Amino acid sequence: MAVLDFYTNPQSRGRMVRWMLEETGAPYETHILTYNGTMKSADYLAINPMGKVPTIVHDGKVVTECAAICAYLADVFPDAGLAPAVDDRAAYYRWLFFGAGPLEAAVVNRTFGFEVPAERERAIGYGNFGHVMDTLDTWLSTHPYIAGDAFTAADVYVGSQLAWGMRFNTVEDRPSFRAYAERLISRPAFIRASELDDAAAAEMS
């Protein structure tokens, strides 16, 4: 059996990957890192020179970046059914990378007070924050999951951003977003992952 190591902090985007790992059902070992300590240690920087979490090491192969980790895990654990068939992945890839590009960029920029000047919107990949929200809203108003009718790894990534964003007011709380998030957070794997990360956070406090 391949060894899977998960490097994270319970107060980080690692929560997305914990959820994804729980969805796969694969065994893994968790390594909790601290922001000003082990995350910047020589041992960890040898694995991820960015000194960021999450990271997974699967059978000696390093994968960083949440979207990449979610896609990778869906592919290497196909029995979990977390990726569509290869010839049916158009929406899956579209929204997975929409989450990693326009959605995250728009939310982070707005959170830190940067608004794109109207005359410069065509130079920015996402245009403006409102356009990103409207695009997601239109899609999720007619699709139960981000890639269509079935839950996939793309829901772990995009759904985490929307649920987290609504909780901390960095994403607009729209009816389609709320209904979508409620479908996701009721999943047993999400509940298990949240309990594990909450317990880890409590131990660190």
Rank of each mutant, 00 (worst) to 15 (best):
A80P: 06
G130M: 11
I47L: 15
A100I: 06
Y44H: 01
I32D: 04
R122F: 12
E29F: 06
L103A: 10
E115D: 15
S141C: 06
D88K: 15
V86N: 11
P27M: 10
E121W: 01
P84E: 09
T55G: 06
G127C: 11
F77C: 10
N109T: 01
D75H: 12
G81H: 00
N109W: 03
A106S: 15
T64D: 11
I69R: 04
A46T: 06
V86R: 11
A42W: 03
H58C: 08
W95M: 06
L33R: 01
L33D: 01
F114V: 14
K40I: 03
G81S: 05
P49M: 08
A46K: 12
I69M: 13
C66D: 07
H143D: 10
A85C: 07
A150C: 13
L96R: 06
F151H: 08
E119H: 13
Y35H: 13
C70P: 00
T64Q: 12
G148K: 07
F97D: 03
D75L: 11
G51R: 00
D134N: 09
G60N: 09
A46Q: 12
M133E: 03
G37N: 11
S41N: 13
A153V: 05
V116N: 02
A105G: 03
A67S: 15
I69S: 00
I124W: 07
I47C: 11
A68G: 03
V63Q: 10
Y28C: 09
F151A: 05
Y92G: 00
L45Q: 09
E119V: 13
G51E: 05
C66H: 00
A80H: 06
V62R: 03
H131T: 14
E119D: 15
A118I: 04
V76P: 00
A68V: 04
N109A: 13
A67P: 02
Y145P: 00
V116C: 01
Y28E: 07
I32T: 03
V86I: 13
D88V: 02
G130A: 13
